[in-house]
């Protein structure tokens, strides 16, 4: 059974998400520093890891941003065929992704990996991709993605949610309907409620 929600329904996942081989753990820590204070300037993963990343030869794949950057020549034909998407982690600077392709809309899918439920950077990243960078195709959240983020993710421009494997996507679907009329303008509905509806003045 698929655990992918797209457009308010559980659907089969056409995409294979490619991950980096082990070695991430220590690097991720430093990457946090890079993003936070731009002090150290390390890469988010090593050349060895990028080289060792195994990519299926056929079918639709979502590869790590760093792998795309290092192995563009090898992967470019798949981008042309519409069979390549990219993913980035919440601690990676969004600008790196924006600079990595001529036009973000060449990508049929962008996925954002959230390591912990409590990491709300994923919301700003979604918002910026949709509003600042004009990205129109599928935007997927994956990682520690659970029912109680979905309403916020939807409002921040995500339309695709890979629910964590040990949780029910059917249950999570309900989370998309938590509130009928949110107050503020966001990505899915840019108008705040006072511009959408007549409001009571008793």
């Amino acid at each position: 059974m698929s655990n992918l929600i797209r457009n308010n329904a559980i659907v089969e996942n056409e995409w294979t998400t490619v991950t980096l081989p082990a070695g991430e753990e220590t690097i991720r820590k430093q990457a946090g520093k890079v993003v936070m204070f731009k002090l150290t300037g390390e890469q988010t993963c090593t050349p060895e890891q990028i080289a060792a990343t195994v990519i299926p030869e056929n079918g639709k794949v979502i590869v790590p941003l760093a792998v795309w950057q290092a192995r563009k020549d090898e992967l470019a034909p798949r981008l042309v065929k519409g069979e390549l998407g990219l993913w980035l982690a919440t601690h990676e600077p969004l600008q790196t992704l924006v600079d990595a392709v001529d036009d973000l809309n060449q990508l049929p899918i962008i996925a954002v990996h959230v390591e912990r439920f409590a990491d709300g950077r994923i919301f700003s990243i979604g918002n910026l991709l949709r509003t600042r960078h004009g990205y129109n195709n599928e935007l997927r959240a994956f990682g520690d993605v659970l029912r109680d983020q979905l309403f916020f993710l939807k409002r921040c421009g995500y339309d695709s949610y890979q629910i964590r494997a040990d949780r029910s996507a059917a249950d999570a679907l309900a989370g998309l309907q938590d509130f009928s009329q949110p107050y503020q303008g966001a990505v899915d509905e840019s108008m705040p409620v006072w511009r959408r509806l007549p409001r009571g003045a008793q």
Binding site: F117, G120, F152, C156, Y183
Partner: peptide, 10 residues
Amino acid sequence: WSTFHPEFAL
């Protein structure tokens, strides 16, 4: 505005 602001929930 701040109530369930989706971008600033976490």
